[in-house]
Amino acid sequence: MRLGVIAWLMAILLPWPPATASAQDATPPDVLVSRHLAEAEDLRVGSVIRLALDATGTKAREFRVAGIYEPTPDPSRLGQVPRSVRLHLPDLLDMTRPLDVPAGAEYVASVNVALVDPADAEQFARDVNARLPGVLAQPSGEAAGSAGPFRVLERFHLAIAVVTIVAATVFLLALTIMLVDERRETVGVLRLIGLPVRRILVQILLEGVLVASVGAAFGLVLALLSEQLINLFFQWRYDTALVFVRITRDVALTCVAIAVPLGASATVVASWALLRRGGLRLARR
């Protein structure tokens, strides 16, 4: 059983009076505070803080800041500055235990269990449910119920990307049709000279691939430049370590893999439509 049960308390920070005399030598228990809390309250490693259950100071206790941590960013809590404190579970239980509950009889909201073999999760949950009537065990995939926020955002972005690509394709086709149209006379002359359609098509395809590649490269450079800007802006805006845009090698390759064939085939489709009309008609407007 993993004892990495991390409970957090919405701490109410009481201003700590300057240390009068270190009468109690017993060092206070360690806590971790989030970077945001540390920044807001000017806390450093070694600072001693007092945590209480409410503003009136119920069950106030001293703790020593043993470290400052960056909270795991959660996109669905974006904009909420995570001012949180992590306590050792026994310390938390000591503070929150009702008067009439003996030590050791507290409750926790949940216990995460790591199994040796994750495939046993279903069976394990059934066993626990059968043996411990007050407890509900659920495989974690199911407990999440639906996809996590990151997954959902990923799907959302994918959907938007698809729409963008569709729109881009449509525009691209419109442009290539016009560009090819503009060169109908050249193509007409080539046809009249007697160049076979295939030769002309190959020529156009090569040109399309070249243009599409240059375009894709340009797009990537633009994306890489804006990546930094967007991340800096949003990290500043939300005071989070969350990375908003990351262009990985895979993303870059996917983009190129979509853009180049798309551009090239748009050129070919447009030229083919033109070439079908035959050489003579092309030369005369």
Binding site: A144, G145, S146, A147, V152, F156, A159, I160
Partner: peptide, 13 residues
């Protein structure tokens, strides 16, 4: 499109 995207986002816990 909005109804589709809404359905995707509502998958958020």
């Amino acid at each position: 499109l909005a109804s589709g995207l809404d359905r995707i986002l509502k998958g958020m816990p």
